[in-house]
């Protein structure tokens, strides 16, 4: 199983998470998002980039409650809440946004 992007083949697991996180590119994010039925806006990118920074620092993808708290700290309460994040990523902000960000599935996420 693999994504095809700009002539490159990028392996992913059965749920669509890429196998090697160093292969992530922005065009790839666009393709994964499309598969997920998401049209990437600036608001989507804000969360995806936040997740990538978070992962770089802590080497782990946050569980959704941790993500909500961390977003709230950085961008304020109008973005750091479940409703806002679920509107952007209807199938779960941690799960879906992590997939688009090229990160592994968050720990404790079923």
């Amino acid at each position: 199983m693999a994504y095809e992007v700009e002539g490159k083949t990028i392996e992913h697991d059965e749920e669509g998470y890429i196998t090697n996180i160093s292969e992530w590119t922005e065009p790839l994010a666009g393709i994964i998002a499309k598969d997920e039925g998401i049209d990437m806006t600036d608001e989507h990118w804000e969360v995806v980039n936040f997740l990538r920074d978070y992962y770089n620092e802590y080497q782990i993808a946050p569980a959704v409650r941790v993500l909500v708290k961390a977003i709230k700290k950085k961008f304020g309460a109008e973005k750091g809440n479940n409703k806002y994040l679920y509107e952007l990523f209807p199938y779960g902000p941690a799960k879906q946004a992590c997939k688009i960000a090229g990160l592994p599935k968050p720990t404790g996420c079923v």
């Binding site: 802590y58 080497q59 782990i60």
Partner: peptide, 9 residues
């Protein structure tokens, strides 16, 4: 995996 950064969480 170097998991020591995870203690930051």
């Amino acid at each position: 995996k170097n998991f020591s950064p995870m203690y930051g969480v």
